[in-house]
């Protein structure tokens, strides 16, 4: 009887340990390591990378006045190259004002509507991709670094649960491909660990730049599940979990992927 009780305790303990510290691939590997030679060559040379067209545009937009305030990003934040250094590596994070989990896309649009008095930019529009890629570029090479605390724990847990929940007609969870089968072949693709560190990224499949949320929607579609909207709470929570999971990997923004 006592032994059984001990066993029960042990099981409960391991479940709560899982809840506190879910599985993370070890060693962590960026998707670039699973990419082919062409993709790596495109990424490694900044001039070759088509993604850099968006950061070039982002730099212009950063300095351009917008909205009725006629303020530019630079009016408040000055030079992005110094003031935005390391910023995106800490996102998504809880906004002090709204107490809501916010990603870089949300932060840019918050600035637009509140500070610039301009229209918010559409998710995956060239303008929003340009600005987020330009801000992200300032963190390139820095380690992904989010903190899970009392403020965002609920978001983290929802994102984690989504990652481990089977969904869609294929009845697969994120973990089935990206924890258990990375490095293995799916047709001619090599399954990656599914990290968020290169986004926004240029995907050959898209022939353009795209946000992390677009990439996640593609995964939902891949398993034939309903796709949450870009910018939705579901994807924001998943984004936080992915950032925690990629903790320590270097930001690659703007990345290049197949």
């Amino acid at each position: 009887m006592m032994r059984r009780f001990q066993l029960l305790l042990l099981t409960l303990a391991s479940i709560s340990a899982f809840a506190a510290q879910p599985f993370r691939p070890d060693p962590l590997k960026s998707g670039l390591e699973f990419s082919g030679a062409e993709v790596r060559a495109l990424y490694q040379d900044d001039f070759s990378s088509p993604a850099m067209l968006w950061t070039t545009r982002g730099e212009k937009l950063w300095n351009e006045p917008a909205g009725t305030s006629q303020k530019s990003c630079a009016s408040c934040h000055q030079d992005a190259r110094t003031r935005m250094k390391g910023v995106s590596a800490k996102y998504p994070k809880v906004d002090r004002g709204t107490a809501q989990l916010t990603n870089i896309e949300g932060r840019v649009n918050q600035c637009r509507t509140q500070n610039q008095q301009a229209e918010p930019l559409r998710y995956d529009s060239d303008e929003l991709l340009a600005l987020t890629a330009y801000v992200g570029l300032q963190s390139r090479g820095q380690a992904v670094n989010v903190t899970i605390d009392a403020q965002n724990r609920r978001n983290f847990e929802r994102g984690r649960d989504m990652f481990f929940t089977r969904m869609g007609q294929m009845n697969l969870a994120c973990t089935h491909c990206h924890d258990r089968n990375f490095g293995r072949k799916l047709l001619n693709d090599t399954v990656s660990q599914g990290h968020s560190n290169p986004y926004p990224a240029y995907r050959l499949e898209w022939q353009t730049m795209g946000s992390l949320h677009r990439r996640l929607r593609a995964c939902f579609f891949g398993v034939r599940a309903e796709m949450p909207a870009s910018g939705s709470q579901d994807l924001l929570d998943l984004e936080l979990f992915l950032a925690w999971r990629a903790q320590g990997l270097k930001v690659e923004t703007p990345g290049v992927r197949k």
Partner: peptide, 12 residues
């Protein structure tokens, strides 16, 4: 020319 393994229907 190889095809991608995962279909993508996210064109915005």
């Amino acid at each position: 020319v190889t095809e991608t393994a995962c279909l993508d229907a996210t064109d915005p």
